[in-house]
Design a protein around this nucleic acid. Sequence first.
DNA 1: TATCAATAGTTGACATATCAATTAAATTAA
DNA 2: TTAATTTAATTGATATGTCAACTATTGATA
Lengths: 144, 144
Amino acid sequence: MADKEIENVILFQVDQTSKASKIYSQRELDKLGIDITIEQWVLLKIIEEKAPLSQKELAEKSLRDPASITRTLHLLEKKQLITREAIPNNRRQHNLFLTQQGVNFVNENMTLVRQLRKKSIEGFTQNELKTLSKLLLRIQQNMQ
Amino acid sequence: MADKEIENVILFQVDQTSKASKIYSQRELDKLGIDITIEQWVLLKIIEEKAPLSQKELAEKSLRDPASITRTLHLLEKKQLITREAIPNNRRQHNLFLTQQGVNFVNENMTLVRQLRKKSIEGFTQNELKTLSKLLLRIQQNMQ
DNA sequence: TATCAATAGTTGACATATCAATTAAATTAA
DNA sequence: TTAATTTAATTGATATGTCAACTATTGATA
């Protein structure tokens, strides 16, 4: 089979799509003076939806390295958006929660986030969305 | 519309797919003792296919920041995989090329890379591939 | 032509990605 | 119960992502 140009490689296209979306979304956040990175937002949102959870679980759900999670959580703690609470009979893990400020922050910015999510799939039918989800999931399953 | 869980957000799925594929591919490279990162490989491959080109063009094609390109190119130069050549009558830009070592490196590792590309889309029909490409492209166009 | 504006690339600062090594705690095995 | 193993989180080192500031050069304009 003849070699593809890299632009025609699906993995390259997936990565480009992810990058382009992040660049766009980050600019929109910046424009509105919302002081958070996309990666930080994702962690906040996961904690909001799944709390209480441990750093290990957060790393798994976000597909990020535990070391990286540690560092980003410190930043989110400094911004007073999250807290860690001791788990009884377990001094190795801590439960992660949003602070009240964190809850407010997520609520205040969900409108913009919903707009971004919506914009990303503008013109898509429900069918196309389902198809895309399934195809992406199959790539993930192939790459394990 | 009711709020989605983050796992159901397409942008999240695209990012997870990209991350999972990179983690898998990097591990395969490491296993074989191939001393290169995915990001470095992508730059090498673009230079191979498009040379001669400038750093600006490379940044655009890879959707990476020029600052980041500068640093990665230094690493690739240190590994003697690429060179920069002066452009006549233009002392601001340089043309990027693979060295002979770079050409050899790409050739030696294309077999593995082809395997990884193939594995990522195992079980996909030509039709599904086309569909996926088009849907991804539409997201990119939406996010500009 | 002299000045100003735009462009390509670099560097600094900080956030994130990743691996390896470490620490502290929990679990298992002897 | 003690010792060995496994686990969760952290830290160090290096690569990458991003913005802002800067340098050198080129292009535009008065």
